[in-house]
């Protein structure tokens, strides 16, 4: 029991130390900046389609469900605002985070884990190349900036799909939809709330995935475990942080 607690504390300390060293490895050369741009493209741009499609479907589902509930109370004209409110504040950052954790978290953990198993980090160090600057920091930074950007994309696609459903299938007029949206959701209160959350989620995904990869057991099973742990842990952390953030914002706002 006590050795288990000790091991958990030790891993926690190790992961804090790891993320601090990664964040300290700022780019110093052209190659490092190039690596950051490559990672933003590989991790962020390559996730745009999946996020856009997910946003469309979720926007449509929330609109239909909301419309059915609101119609019951004679408030169907509020559907645009309600959809936007829930997308901006909760569904956007959480679903984007979970999708990103599934796609990129597993990718990063397995990539870094395989590099570690094949001694490629030691190889880079022996070639006098700082692996943290060239490999770890660019990935961390790319995830950190990609998740908020993808969250915005998700929100836009969800709101646009909601608009299309409302105006084409539910008989809500343009003016009513946009008026409700403008009235219900505020830029700083709602949009920035979601963006801030997604920024934190990005940090969590990068931290968990890179750490799991870096400290993977050097076996085939170890790598599989690390990949699974990266996705499962970061997804659970996202949900837990979402609750804490929402509870705190309710207290302070």
């Amino acid at each position: 029991m006590s050795s288990g607690i000790l091991a958990t504390c030790s891993r926690l300390g190790q992961s804090f130390w790891f993320v601090l060293r990664t964040l300290k490895a700022f780019p110093r050369r052209r190659e490092h900046v190039k690596a950051i741009l490559q990672q933003i493209y590989a991790l962020g741009n390559q996730s745009m389609l999946i996020v856009f499609v997910a946003g469309c479907f979720i926007g449509m589902v929330v609109t239909l469900q909301g419309y059915m509930s609101l119609e019951h109370y004679g408030a169907s004209s509020e559907v645009g605002g309600l959809t936007a409110y829930s997308i901006y504040r909760e569904l956007g950052p959480v679903v984007t985070g979970l999708l990103f954790a599934g796609r990129v978290g597993s990718l990063l953990a397995s990539e870094i884990g395989l590099m570690q198993i094949n001694q490629q980090f030691v190889c880079l160090e022996m070639l006098s190349i700082n692996a943290s600057r060239l490999v770890l920091f660019p990935r961390f930074f790319a995830v950190l900036v990609s998740v908020p950007a993808l969250n915005i994309l998700f929100c836009l696609s969800a709101v646009m799909s909601s608009y299309l459903i409302c105006t084409s299938a539910l008989g809500v007029s343009d003016g009513v939809f946009w008026n409700s949206l403008e009235y219900r959701s505020l830029f700083f209160r709602d949009v920035m709330h979601g963006v801030t959350k997604s920024f934190i989620f990005g940090g969590v995904i990068a931290w968990v995935a890179l750490y799991q990869g870096m400290y993977t057991e050097k076996t085939r099973l170890g790598l599989a475990k690390a990949t699974t742990a990266a996705v499962v842990s970061s997804s659970l952390y996202i949900l837990a942080i979402d609750y804490i953030f929402t509870a705190l914002s309710r207290s302070f706002l």
Binding site: N118, Q119, Q120, V122, C123, E125, M126, L127, S128, I129, N130
Partner: peptide
């Protein structure tokens, strides 16, 4: 760390696993 990187500029290493970038 920076000085260690300078020292390693004078070194080469052959790994048991080869450590080639696949």
């Amino acid at each position: 760390v920076a000085s260690l990187e300078d020292l390693r500029m004078n070194m080469g290493m052959l790994f048991q696993t080869n450590a080639l970038f696949a």
